[in-house]
Design a binder for these strands. Structure first.
Lengths: 240, 240
DNA sequence: TGCAAGCAAATTGTATCCAATTGACGAAAA
DNA sequence: TTTTCGTCAATTGGATACAATTTGCTTGCA
């Protein structure tokens, strides 16, 4: 109730559609940070009364989340947190690599003055939570890539990268063994260095390797601790 | 009224959310085919009573269209058919080239058996309307690229390409001088040939050139006959 | 005549209400 | 015991009603 209203007030100035946006944002974060686990149901009125808004609002937010691939809806059945199949996961990673390579290519051509500062600041904040395994680090890792995309100045590209990175975060939470990959933070620094050197070739190589490693971790079997997501996988078959 | 209901029945079997989907599809086509011109207002209840559905449905459809970049909404002001600026247009084309190059790369690796048949059938249908300048040819030209993306089997990629091609269609309708570009159809054939030869390098070159030509036509000044879109550009500044 | 304040019309933002569909449970028959 | 059919609860699909905000116009005043 107050949650949504407060976030609404905060985002009101910079955005619009306050309540819908607020719920949308709230749900998205909850999904990425695994508060809402893949396969979990999202009944409209439950979510609505949780946030103190009407179903109408939740409904709109769910429509958006479905467009973003973070939830799926089944007719007259409701919305669920998406459980990307391994095939879909691979597709997502394929597109991600394609888009991020373009990001790198563009950044090597031109990067705003404040770019390096912002990137390095972000890496520092990543290092601060390096020890802790968990949702925060996975979110920050994603935001690094989103920041890269935003620095290109191409808003369309940035929006797609943002979307696809979020989907990757969801996928990682399903399949990856450990998100707290110290190497990832290190690789982020390497990427910055390569861009700074203007060496597009090498930067893309690093990014490819970086994403490959990320995708590689996702190639493994589902995480041992997310029993329910495994069960819901089977359940998806049983319950039609 | 009957329009939406009929299309709803048609798409009901293969999709879900019948009415919303129907209105969404209807509006999208109307925009691409320039029945609804850029800058035009889309009041919820007007559209709703036109199709015989309630504002709720229209609203959902508009939310989706906004996500797709085909309409923009301003708080308490309503929805408008998007009028991409030239800068945004360039961004869109940039992303499009990136994605379509990936499509080509994938198709050169693997293409389903029925692929060539479907592509050639499409080119034939393009040739059928070659003479006529107008919305149909612009739509078909876009659908060729969407078909290419679908043949990759990567649904995520196909969805993004589809979205971006539609935006390009809108952009072309705003800026391009003549859509009936005989060369385009010819280049489509060349692309098929290059893929068939498995020559990824050459196929990408052709595609690059093809998209470059498309983007080039869009680089020109707004079409002379779309006075209102020019005025609305200025109006965008005047009306706050 | 020009500007400002205020009022009215229109349109969106949100909530609530009714109908339709689905899934589950249970009972009855094979 | 198993399978099938029917009823019921739960949840979404869609429409309508109400509130809030914006816009444009009118009116009054300098």
């Amino acid at each position: 109730m107050t949650d949504a209203k407060m976030l609404a007030d905060k985002t009101m100035s910079e955005n619009k559609n306050t309540l819908t946006n607020a719920v949308h944002e709230l749900l998205r974060r909850a999904i990425i940070e695994q508060a809402l686990k893949p396969g979990m149901r999202l009944p409209e009125d439950t979510v609505g009364e949780q946030f103190g808004v009407s179903r109408t609002i939740v409904r709109h937010a769910l429509v958006r989340l479905e467009n973003e691939g973070l939830v799926i809806t089944r007719r007259n059945r409701g919305a669920f947190v998406a459980e990307p199949s391994k095939e879909e996961a691979q597709h997502v990673f394929e597109v991600r690599r394609c888009l991020e390579n373009e990001v790198i290519r563009l950044l090597c051509q031109r990067i705003p003055d404040s770019g390096y500062d912002r990137l390095e600041a972000h890496v520092r904040s990543e290092e601060n939570v390096k020890g802790k395994d968990g949702p925060v680090s996975i979110r920050l890792a994603g935001e690094f890539h989103i920041l890269l995309a935003e620095l290109t100045g191409n808003e369309v590209l940035a929006r797609y990268v943002s979307e696809i990175v979020l989907r990757c975060s969801l996928i990682m939470s399903l399949y990856a063994r450990n998100h707290s990959s110290d190497c990832a933070v290190d690789e982020h620094s390497q990427i910055i260095a390569a861009i700074r050197a203007g060496d597009a070739e090498r930067a893309i190589d690093i990014m490819d390797h970086h994403l490959g490693a990320v995708a590689g971790r996702a190639e493994l079997s589902p995480r041992p601790d997310s029993i329910q997501s495994i069960l819901s996988h089977y359940g998806k078959e049983l319950a039609h």
